[in-house]
Design a binder for these strands. Structure first.
Lengths: 148, 148
DNA sequence: ATTTCTGCAAATGCTTTGCATTGCA
DNA sequence: TGCAATGCAAAGCATTTGCAGAAAT
């Protein structure tokens, strides 16, 4: 709650309660919420907050590099306050997004793999996203129960 | 143009000129077009075709497994008739999507990596997508010229 | 003859925009 | 005080839906 204020001020972006609140929610959760989810979590404490403000805020935080945007397909863009490279799993049944930490690929991405892609594609690569799609443990269980 | 008809008939899905046309376009191109692009390419030969039909068609082809859907962020979902595992680069400037073939990661994905993710996450993984984001050679060049 | 698909137009729903008001700096 | 951000409502767009007519099996 200190660093972020400085980062914003450095970029001449005003520090507002709304921005702090959105960031704070993303910092606390591991659910990778979308805009609507963030809005709902905010409601109790900030009943006056507008959905448009949440859209604008995640955009600002993203451009400043404080959060990253995930694109898993359904349910809109998801947001993550963890900006270091890591992969994600998406449950196609319930829409849950989990982190997959400590894949050796995560470090791998920085060097060998990235160089190879740059070489092969000629692109100037600035970001990587690795997504896994499937069914989460909870949904697998429910599917089992249902079919018995 | 033979196999696809059989695949559709097997699943009791009717073979129509529109469906064949959409698939044929995806089969020919490497541009990973979105629905609008497919629609535009179709127009000369199928002036009566509706955009809604293109949406419905890519959905059918995807569910049957004849094409895959890519989610690079901007410019809507992209479609690819190559369904074998391979990665993609996305140009954040012009929206171009290219293939990145022959990453050892592509075979890697099938086994070791997948097993590790399944173990770590508890998810039942059915698909993987690896995206690289950056600037393509053409856009890099234009940026250079512009800044001189 | 049935059943499914197409094309149109309307509806939906997420996201963005414009602008007056509010609030940081 | 001045400039930027918020909140609201309206606008914008991509995608979906409903349905009558057309086409495939």
């Amino acid at each position: 709650m200190q660093a972020i204020e400085e980062i914003l001020r450095t970029k001449k972006i005003k520090v507002t309660p709304q921005r702090m609140a959105v960031y704070s929610i993303l910092k606390k959760t591991q659910a990778h919420p979308n805009v609507e989810m963030i809005f709902q979590k905010l409601k109790p404490d900030y009943p006056a907050m507008s959905l448009a403000t949440v859209y604008k805020t995640v955009d600002v935080l993203k451009r400043v590099g404080l959060i990253q945007e995930l694109n898993v397909g359904e349910s809109g863009l998801r947001y993550d306050a963890v900006v270091s490279p890591h992969s994600h799993v998406y449950c196609e049944k319930c829409g849950k997004v989990d982190d997959v930490d400590d894949l050796e690929l995560d470090e791998f991405q920085d060097q060998a793999l990235l160089n190879k892609v740059i070489e092969k594609s000629g692109f100037n690569i600035s970001a990587v996203q690795l997504y896994f799609f499937g069914i989460c443990p909870d949904c697998s269980e429910k599917l089992m129960e249902g079919s018995i």
